[in-house]
Amino acid sequence: MGCDGGTIPKRHELVKGPKKVEKVDKNAAIAARWKYCALSQEKLRRPIVSCDLGRFYNKDAVIEYLLDKTAERPNIEVAVHIRGIKDIKELNLTDNPAWAGERSNTKGDQYEDMNCGMFICPVVGVEMNGRHKFCFLQSCGCVFSDRAMKEVKTEICHKCGDTFQEEDIIVLNGTKEEVEKLQERMEEKRAKAKAGKKSKKSKVPETVSKSEDSQAPGPSDPVSSDPVSSSTSSDPSKATKRSSTTTPTTSSTTTTTTTTTIGSKRSIQGMKDKTELYKSLFTSHSSAKRTKDQTSNWVTHTPYHF
């Protein structure tokens, strides 16, 4: 057959069959989602953040993306929904004491457990390695396993003690159906926030216009609205009668004002219903007055220095 050394070729070497479909290693796929940043494809390192869709990111990678969105980066479609730093939440993770680190097996002479995760659930102790379902609270950022949230049902965070609602629970690296639900929730949340901002902006000009209307003076009416004055202008005899009737009222008002002003300026020493002991408490009493011998020629910090 033309082969050197008398070798006999086999059929699969001569006949080309269909190519086998390459299968992705499950361990590698899980590690890519739970141990690497979804944006930069680098290994996760603190501070680690997550978005409303439950994906892992390195915080510095997200900041670089927000500062320069024009740069060509791989997997940029993963972070399209992140518009600002408020759209991410820093995760409060619990370290796994069994995690020895990546440099523990540099020689390659030790067994490396691929299922060992860097973080664990603080309630149940389950490792966050992709084999178990995990979620985090959007209010405080604490991460727990789904098993802990179902077994210990409460409205207070197990780790920090902050209150949360069911809407604050976001699944990490969920399935397609779970990601679609989270996306719908995110869009509803942003729509409500946008409507709230519009309502606040509309209320501000309304309050300004109301204040301007209250401060603006009313239109002056040149025509008198008093029927009596109009009638007196035509008949002088009625005018004299009107003036005679109005004089007592004006005098009464002046007397009341004078009495109130006099009453407000009345001295305490002239009140007969007050006792002498009560009057002596005030500086207007005769006992508080000093003679010329008691007065000093030098200035002090208080005029009542003796």
Rank of each mutant, 00 (worst) to 15 (best):
G130Y: 05
R131D: 13
M149G: 01
T154E: 02
C140D: 06
G161N: 10
N105P: 07
P122Y: 04
V124R: 14
I169C: 00
G117T: 02
D87E: 07
E127Q: 14
N96T: 00
A98Q: 08
C116S: 03
K107P: 01
P97I: 03
N96A: 00
G101L: 05
K200S: 11
A193H: 04
E102L: 10
K159C: 02
I169K: 03
K176M: 13
N129H: 06
A98H: 09
N173T: 01
M118I: 00
K176W: 07
S202E: 15
T154R: 05
D162M: 14
V179R: 12
K189A: 12
M114K: 14
C135M: 12
A195G: 07
N115K: 03
V124F: 15
S199M: 13
I88D: 06
K89V: 10
C135S: 15
T154G: 07
E166D: 03
T106M: 11
N96G: 03
C160R: 08
K197C: 10
L182T: 12
T94P: 04
K203G: 10
F119V: 06
M186F: 09
G125L: 12
L182K: 07
D109Q: 10
H158S: 10
A148N: 00
D87W: 00
V171P: 13
V123M: 08
Y111P: 01
K200C: 01
C160T: 09
A148F: 03
R190Q: 15
V126I: 14
K203R: 14
Q138T: 12
C140H: 05
K86Q: 09
T106P: 07
R185P: 08
G130R: 00
A98E: 13
I85H: 04
V179C: 13
G117H: 00
L182R: 08
C116E: 09
R103K: 15
L172K: 03
C160E: 06
V179I: 14
R190F: 15
P205H: 07
K159A: 07
C140F: 11
V124Y: 15
H158E: 06
S145V: 02
N96I: 06
K86P: 03
R185A: 14
E166H: 02
D113H: 06
E155F: 05
K200T: 07
T175V: 01
Y111M: 05
V179H: 09
C135R: 06
D87V: 04
I169L: 03
S104M: 11
I85T: 09
E187R: 04
S199Y: 11
K203T: 12
D87Q: 00
K197M: 14
A195F: 10
T106S: 12
D146C: 12
D109E: 13
G84M: 08
S104P: 04
Q183L: 15
C142W: 01
K189G: 12
G196D: 14
E188W: 04
F144Q: 04
K189V: 09
K194N: 14
F136V: 04
C140I: 15
V171A: 11
I170S: 03
P122A: 10
